[in-house]
């Protein structure tokens, strides 16, 4: 993951060396510590490395980790191998939020994040709340209702989105590229806002990883083992959908990572969530960062949408793993 980050920072249209990166890092560290820095880095290189590449590489790590983790969590919670981070409508809510921000030209940016990301985040949160409300009765959340409510709300929101797209006129392109997902717009404020949220949620999920194994047992069995299954489900759903909302708001709808990375890791390392979860997080972060590198350098000077690369690279690799292990694959 660290390697992927460094390579991601190193590679780009402007030629930079590893030393440049090191120097920029040192210089910024010195500056932060109020030391007198005498390091010489070409101004243009410093600008590019510091303002574009660092935030971009960091964001792909964060989003990759978040999506893989929440994919892993949702697959366990729903006991469904097809579940992914977007299954309860987070992406549709965020997309609709983004569309509203783009078409109405809203300016409600907070914490330095642009208005599209801000409204997308609100859209995602509102969707999650609505879906949970629909699926819960007497304080308990029914997983099946949640799945159904999520899918239906998604369909409804997509329809509203389509209507907005018809009327969006000149702004349509912004929306389309947002829907494809990518990191080219990411700057420091995104990192400083998203990092604490995603990292703290990830830590919570990791600490509770043991319980995910129990969720895969029947409810009765889990109850015998002293776990309040409904409480656990709730905690995981909230954490999972929350980090997904943050990730989607920052980078648009990047598909595939959340669905397939947990499966890849399951095939390679087995179904124990204490290992599966951290390994999925690392793999998701590395995979997405790697895909972002490919997106940038595949056909210069054109930049491809990263979601396309994740699917193009990830799908065949996953199929290969599935083919190799088809006899022993258990969910």
């Amino acid at each position: 993951m660290v390697l992927a980050w460094i390579i991601s920072v190193r590679i780009g249209p402007l030629h930079t060396s590893y030393m440049d990166i090191f120097h920029v890092l040192l210089k910024k560290a010195f500056l932060w510590l109020n030391w007198n820095a005498t390091l010489e880095v070409e101004k243009t290189k410093e600008f590019v490395i510091w303002n574009f590449r660092f935030p971009r590489a960091s964001m792909s790590i964060l989003v990759g980790a978040a999506l893989a983790a929440s994919g892993c969590v949702f697959q366990a919670v729903f006991k469904n191998p097809l579940a992914d981070p977007y299954v309860i409508g987070v992406s549709s809510g965020a997309a609709l939020g983004a569309a509203i921000a783009i078409i109405l030209g809203l300016h409600i940016a907070f914490l330095g994040v642009n208005s599209i990301a801000s409204v997308a985040f609100i859209g995602a949160l509102v969707t999650i709340l609505v879906v949970y409300r629909l699926a819960s009765a007497e304080g308990r959340i029914s997983v099946t209702s949640l799945l159904l409510a999520g899918v239906i709300v998604s369909i409804f929101l997509s329809a509203v989105l389509s209507i907005l797209m018809v009327f969006s006129g000149w702004e349509l392109h912004v929306l389309i590229f947002w829907l494809m997902g990518g990191f080219s717009h990411v700057r420091w404020p995104y990192i400083t806002t998203a990092t604490p949220i995603i990292i703290s949620c990830l830590i919570c999920i990791l600490l509770l990883a043991r319980n995910l194994n129990l969720l895969l047992l029947s409810e009765e069995e889990a109850q015998y083992l002293g776990v309040d299954i409904f409480k656990m489900v709730k905690i995981f759903l909230v954490l999972g959908s929350f980090i997904t909302a943050v990730a989607v708001s920052c980078s648009g709808c990047i598909g595939f990572v959340g669905l397939v990375v947990p499966h890849m890791m399951r095939i390679l390392l087995g179904p124990d969530h204490r290992i599966l979860l951290p390994s999925s997080i690392l793999a998701g972060a590395s995979l997405l960062t790697f895909c972002d590198i490919v997106a940038r350098i595949a056909c210069p000077p054109i930049e491809l949408p990263v979601g396309v690369i994740t699917a193009l690279i990830g799908a065949p690799f996953f199929l290969y793993l599935l083919y190799r292990k088809r006899e022993v694959y258990t969910f």
Partner: peptide, 26 residues
């Protein structure tokens, strides 16, 4: 037409940047 990253433009280091838009929202 195509999308490029900001650093591609910085690397190209143009003398002039022309931004065209049929209508601005800002």
């Amino acid at each position: 037409w195509a999308t490029v990253s900001p650093e591609t433009v910085i690397e190209a280091d143009p003398d002039v940047i022309i931004y065209t838009s049929m209508g601005l929202t800002v």
